[in-house]
């Protein structure tokens, strides 16, 4: 039996649907572009135009303020390495992409996580969607992003947002569901409303899980932003792709190391921040 015709029909109908969307909802995609660029552009300008020394010093002072001298030294060395390797500007662009994507993903993901935890019905709807998003290979996300937003920074960030969002949603919902029933009962028994229970009891007690989601979201954004260089997102990924096409192994490894350094720094700093502000500690 030949199913090629059927497979063709599926592909065609998806094409038709996306064409329909882009034709009739252009305004929506335009405004999404505007918002994303409105965050990313100024951030990138600020970070690339500011003197490297200033940024390195700021991060190091931040490390000291967070109460970790080792963190300050680590970030100083790491950033200095990126600067010395002459990768400062693309690294800052990458960072701006990561921050933009992560902020948007968290701004959408955490509230969705809360809704899922509070409503069984929403949870039933969201579970398969989240499964779908999490098993989707990251490359596939680039296709619709390019279709709706063309090539460049915006589709890169949009694809990154979709890639990085499921985990904070899951971890937020998980943290809220794991709050001991007796804590919720205590709140209710003293006359707290549902919202009061959520904000005064559940969210503070779910803090650790939510922050684990934040950390993972930022880390996944970094890995996706590198992949998104294939559709012109820019930053360190560009360096890597360029070195692949020119067979410059050494340069590629340098850029790769810069990504690793960024990843380590982002991970340590977000973790330390969440430790520092943890209300349950």
């Amino acid at each position: 039996m030949d199913f090629s015709e059927f497979a063709g029909t599926v592909a065609t109908s998806i094409d038709d649907f996306t064409t329909y969307l882009s034709a009739h909802f252009g305004l929506v995609f335009d405004s999404i572009s505007t918002v994303i660029l409105g965050i990313q552009q100024p951030l990138a300008t600020l970070m690339t135009s500011a003197p490297a020394l200033l940024i390195i010093t700021t991060v190091m002072v931040g490390g000291v303020l967070l109460g970790r001298l080792s963190l300050a030294i680590l970030s100083g060395c790491g950033l200095a390495f990126i600067f010395v390797m002459n990768l400062w500007a693309p690294a800052m662009v990458t960072l701006s992409l990561v921050l933009t994507a992560a902020v948007v993903a968290l701004a959408i993901g955490i509230p969705i996580g809360i809704l899922i935890a509070e409503s069984k019905r929403l949870n039933a709807v969201a579970e398969p969607i989240l499964d779908f998003m999490q098993t989707m290979p990251p490359f596939v996300l680039l296709v619709p992003a390019v279709f709706f937003f063309g090539v460049g920074t915006v589709p890169g960030i949009v694809a990154t947002i979709f890639f990085a969002m499921p985990l904070p949603i899951r971890l937020t919902a998980h943290g809220l569901k794991m709050v001991e029933p007796e804590m919720v009962e205590a709140g209710e028994a003293f006359g707290a409303s549902r919202l009061a229970v959520l904000f005064l009891i559940k969210l503070p007690l779910a803090f650790r899980s939510i922050m684990a989601g934040v950390n993972q979201c930022v880390m996944m954004s970094l890995s996706m932003v590198i992949i998104a260089s294939m559709i012109g997102a820019g930053g360190l990924g560009d360096e890597i792709i360029r070195s692949i096409s020119r067979l410059q192994v050494g340069r590629g490894v340098e850029a790769g190391l810069a990504v690793v350094v960024l990843a380590i720094l982002i991970d340590r700093i977000t973790r330390r921040i969440s430790e520092k502000v943890d209300p349950t500690a």
């Binding site: 007796e182 707290a192 007690l205 349950t280």
Partner: peptide
């Protein structure tokens, strides 16, 4: 009012904030 078997005090609040919880809400 209610008192719980495993106390059910809120770990992120101080003793006095725990006591004042009902008044707060």
């Amino acid at each position: 009012g209610m008192v719980f078997q495993h106390f059910a005090l809120l770990p992120h609040m101080s003793v006095i904030d725990n006591v004042a919880f009902g008044l707060r809400v």
